[in-house]
Design a protein around this nucleic acid. Structure first.
Length: 572
RNA sequence: GCGCUUGUAGCUCAGCCGGAUAGAGCAUCGGCCUUCUAAGCCGAGGGUCGCAGGUUCGAGUCCUGCCAAGCGCGCCA
């Protein structure tokens, strides 16, 4: 409109930003439009703001608009316009807050994907809580979400696990041998060995001297632990034969994978698919992906190995995909895996990784590009490891040594709800201190109870309504909403109306912690309202109006907590 | 050495595309239960946004340098 009045250049690109005002004195919405335009039009921001206001069409919901500060335009919304949100929430129920922002685009979210060499620890828990919340949010924002766990059921670490199981099995059979310093020492390995012994008594038994004969020295004997463990693996394969080895291997794999599955399910984390790395080799997908790269000229041979020329596609250096000894590298599997993801036709790929893998991102993006995909399709979200403390003392963790706090222990100690909420509270790519003593000893310090309590309190009000034999008339309440003019009520209405925006932006930014902060704010406002006003008053119209308002609050708390997979108890 | 990430209240952390007087919880201090659950509420104190420059109407936010911490720089996974 200003363009037609000649105030603005006709072809000027104008991006209008209208945002929620932070301070109520600045109205409900504000725009800095006049200030951003002031420069290009060489005019005074406040004068420009006045022209903009005069050019604006009249909207029934806008009570007034005014110029403030250096040139902000503040809009004041008619409080009456806010009341409709209550009706909308109660009508839409669990659907309230869902949007079509993702317009049905498909997105694959791969998360946790921990090696099945041991139980999940608290670091994996953070990835699980984060990935699960991101997936839920994306789904709520209208994306078609496919959740996937990449099972690293091939490779050296799994061989070491298989060898560890076998050695423990031999010990159970009464053989005496030193356990490799680089083997998996966790108690669960012994459990697997015992199970194996039960189902297949002595099928895999070989005398200790034959097992150890001719092996290089282990670390305590002045040798190299890596060389030693590789030799043990080779010996296991040799003595057990392909089939026997595979059965020992699978005993370890399946036992641990079952445990992980159960652990995650109890944590509220579900997947559409558990994708096996081994299947990529068995289906020749790895070879096929390498052929594809070779055909497009991205592979070359050097020093007996096959290299992927990733440095031409933004990586620091080229990477080996086939080793000198003919074995594929882990990266080769990953190329095939991402080729498979692309072939399945997803619009977007999201990988949630531990932050220690960040150096790996450029080569995977390079692979996607070399395979004909678009690197920007892939978004790698990093999760920093939580640093564990017991009070002042830092807890050291290492899967190999068996010295770690498991996700299951954490759940048993603090509960699923607290763990999920606690993890989701923090920005994922931020370092995080997790004090177990604090989380376990003093539960009322945990903010999850604060939000849950708000929900339970509202439920309690409705129970009281019943006990007092008071009627509730939904329609009467709707008709009296305009009486909810107290500051606490106006604040709640505004906050309720923000919920869909919060869900959408949390989804788009992959930032569940925004939702958590919102829920704490909503709970806080509810508690303040609760303390300031009696809901179950004599006046039926006012009573029903207030009940409708808090019913709406309860619905939004429930919807938000569901996205985080935190329960919303009806009483506490 | 190079790369990525981070540095905000005593502690743990938010702070959106650069906006108005930088927020929350915990901790500390002072109040509030005869009334729908006190796992709650009301109030107070607490800040050189790591440091120094720069960009501009405006910087916790963007750029550069420095300091500090974490992680990564394998023919490991």
């Amino acid at each position: 409109m200003l363009k037609s009045q000649g105030e603005l250049v006709a072809d000027a690109e104008v991006s209008v930003m209208v945002e929620r005002a932070r301070d109520p004195r600045h109205g409900d919405y504000a725009t800095n439009l006049a200030m951003t335009l002031a420069k290009s039009t060489k005019s005074n921001p406040r004068q420009l703001a006045e022209k903009i206001i005069n050019a604006l069409p009249v909207h029934p919901a806008v009570l007034k608009s005014e110029i403030a500060g250096p040139g902000f335009i503040n809009f004041f919304i008619d409080p009456k316009a806010q009341f409709s949100i209550v009706q909308q929430i109660l009508e839409e129920g669990r659907e309230f807050g869902l949007s079509e922002a993702g317009s049905g685009k498909s997105v694959l979210v791969e998360y946790v994907s921990a090696n099945p060499t041991g139980p999940l620890h608290v670091g994996h828990g953070r990835g699980a809580a984060y990935g699960s919340a991101v997936a839920n949010l994306l789904s709520a924002a209208g994306f078609k979400v496919h959740r996937e766990y990449y099972v690293n059921d091939a490779g050296r670490q799994m061989d070491i696990l298989a060898a560890s199981v076998w050695l423990r099995y031999l010990e159970e059979c009464g053989e005496v041998l030193a356990f490799p310093s680089n083997g998996y020492r966790g108690e669960y390995v012994r459990d697997i060995a015992q199970e194996l012994l039960k189902t297949a008594c002595s099928d895999y038994l070989h005398p200790a001297n034959k097992v150890l004969d001719g092996l290089p020295p282990d670390e305590p004997q002045g040798g190299d632990k890596e060389t030693y463990i590789d030799a043990v693996v080779a010996r296991a394969k040799d003595l057990l034969g392909p089939e026997g080895y595979r059965r020992v291997f699978d005993a370890g794999l399946n036992s641990i994978l079952d445990d992980i599955r159960m652990d995650l399910a109890e944590f509220g984390v579900e997947y559409e698919e558990w994708f096996s790395e081994r299947s990529l080799a068995e289906s020749k997908a790895v070879e096929r992906s390498l052929d594809k790269l070779r055909a497009s000229g991205h592979l070359y041979e050097k020093e007996g190995a096959v290299w992927f020329a990733s440095s031409q596609l933004g990586d620091e250096k080229d990477r080996v995909v086939v080793r000198e000894n003919g074995q594929m590298t882990y990266f080769a599997s990953d190329i095939a895996y991402h080729m498979d993801k692309l072939e399945r036709g997803f619009d977007y790929l999201i990988n949630i990784w531990g932050a220690d893998h960040h150096g790996y991102i450029p080569r995977v993006k390079a692979a996607i590009q070399a395979l004909g995909g678009n690197p920007s399709q892939l978004d790698v979200l990093l999760v920093q490891f939580a640093v564990l403390y017991r009070g002042e003392e830092k807890v050291q963790m290492s899967t190999r040594s068996g010295e770690f706090v498991t996700l299951r222990q954490l759940r048993n100690e603090v509960g699923k709800d607290a763990a999920r909420f606690f993890y989701a509270m923090r920005k994922s790519d931020q370092h995080m201190d997790f004090d177990l003593r604090l989380a376990t000893s003093n539960t009322n310090e945990n903010p999850v109870y604060y939000v849950q309590y708000a929900h339970a309190r509202i439920c309690s009000v409705f129970r009281q309504l019943d006990e007092k034999g008071l009627p509730r008339d939904l329609v009467l309440g709707m008709n009296h909403l305009e009486r909810l003019t107290a500051p606490h009520e106006a604040t709640l209405l505004t906050t309720l109306s923000r919920y869909p925006e919060v869900v959408e932006s949390s989804a788009m930014q992959h930032a569940p912690h925004h939702l958590v902060h919102y829920l704490r704010e909503l709970a806080s406002e509810l508690h303040a309202y609760y303390n300031a006003h009696q809901f179950l008053v004599e006046d039926a119209g006012l009573r029903d109006a207030r009940l409708n308002l808090i019913a709406a609050v309860r619905q939004v708390l429930l919807n938000g907590l569901r996205l985080l997979d935190v329960s919303a108890p009806e009483s506490m």
